[in-house]
Nucleic acid binder design. Structure first.
Lengths: 235, 235
DNA sequence: ATATATTATATTGCATGCAATATGTCAATA
DNA sequence: TATTGACATATTGCATGCAATATAATATAT
């Protein structure tokens, strides 16, 4: 009665695992035939798996050039961060509305696990559990399409994190925001949710201060400080 | 020098066109062999095209059951509407920051075209141009990943609209919000942007009033009216 | 007549072969 | 030496055949 997985599904999971285990580094090519040989199956399911990974942004496919593990630029990381911030806010605010006590308890235990991983110096575990924590919020939101989108973007974020985990940037991951965020969700503190999520992501992704203002701004048309409009005002 | 399109690309575009022309109605199956015969190519590129359309949410694929044109439920439409609202707000606020005068002029002309289509009773044109208008805002935002996400969700929205264009719901499409939205973007009125986008989408997608409050709320933890927290507070 | 079991058909999943294209190597030339 | 060209290799794109599965039709039993 177990849902039997196709060769294509197996290939999809295996290749993804290779990427996340850094056996396939960003920028390296992923030839169909080599993977096929390694998994002892034919090229066809590998082909499908790679297209699927491409749709999720983990590899890039060019015509007659095949698949390459995605290598995100600094600009792309900022773009993804901005999207993540807004999505997280939507998810958390919905979770505050629809979440049950047991849902929030699950968040607590995930925050526990994440802190434990951090305490024992398990970097990969911390990355994985941080993502699991945020995906749990997404699932509590009850919006299945949002879950799908967040699953996709968090896979990209996963790749970004593991490929620069020894970078300075990585120390900017602020897992100590988890507890207050849970509290804000529990109490339905919309403004607190926005503030905490902004704090949680702004450093790592170098979020533009303007976008922070967009999220937090509790005032009308007039901006609080100096330049309200962007740099390119003229034609 | 024209980028030669593969058979798979052609199939992808052709099938998508069939869906948007309602030659393939939501819920109907899309057998590889039939499409292959119609396009005079083999099953393989059709197979790839269908997986690509599945990744974009236009068809649903089941194991050994093949592809079926997606039929969105009422609940899904609400979910998609919530996501769209937040994405649109992000896009418009970025566009307000990064947009140039010529960018805004393009928005004006698209709003023109959309109104003209509405005036002449061209329902399909109005749907298409409304989407083009919103995608233009997305492009002005300068966030390529956001563009990709919005392209995907607007394709789903396109399918939703055309498949119920004679429904009551469709009269809820409020294109008269375009002009004020452009004005708000031009002047960098963040609060105005949020308000207008909420107004623009809330009726069609039956957005929960709670979510509207999340977007517009300019106050702290305490909610303005009655129930602050969701329905499921207990364990 | 309805429900169930069985068979037949249609459709997809996967493997493999061939053609087309890109990539890397090496030699020839400026 | 650097650059360009031709050639060889590796890799993908597509077509087709076979096996596995789901769907539909039919027959059977209650």
């Amino acid at each position: 009665m177990v849902p039997i997985s196709s060769q294509s599904d197996i290939a999809y999971r295996q290749i993804k695992e290779m990427i996340f285990h850094l056996e396939l580094l960003p920028g390296t090519r992923v030839p169909e035939l080599q993977i096929a040989a390694k998994l002892s199956i034919s090229r066809t399911p590998i082909h499908d798996a790679l297209r699927r990974l491409a749709a999720e942004g983990l590899v890039v496919i060019g015509p007659h050039r095949g698949a390459t593990v995605t290598c995100f630029s600094e600009a792309e990381i900022r773009e993804i961060g901005a999207i993540r911030m807004f999505q997280d806010i939507l998810a958390a605010q919905l979770a505050a509305y629809y979440g049950s006590a047991s849902d929030f308890a699950r968040l607590d235990s995930l925050a526990d696990a994440c802190e434990e991983a951090a305490a024992r110096g398990d970097v990969y575990g911390r990355i994985r559990l941080d993502i699991e924590f945020h995906m749990a919020i997404s699932e509590i939101s009850g919006n299945s399409h949002l879950v799908r989108q967040q699953y996709e973007i968090y896979q990209q974020i996963h790749l970004i994190h593991i490929s620069q985990y020894k970078d300075i940037r990585h120390s900017l991951m602020q897992i100590h925001h988890h507890r207050p965020l849970i509290a804000a969700i529990r109490s339905g503190d919309l403004s607190g949710i926005r503030t905490l999520i902004c704090q949680h992501v702004k450093d790592f992704y170098h979020i533009d201060p303007y976008l922070i203002r967009c999220c937090l701004s509790d005032q009308g048309p007039l901006p609080p400080e100096g330049a309200a409009i962007g740099p390119d005002q003229g034609a």
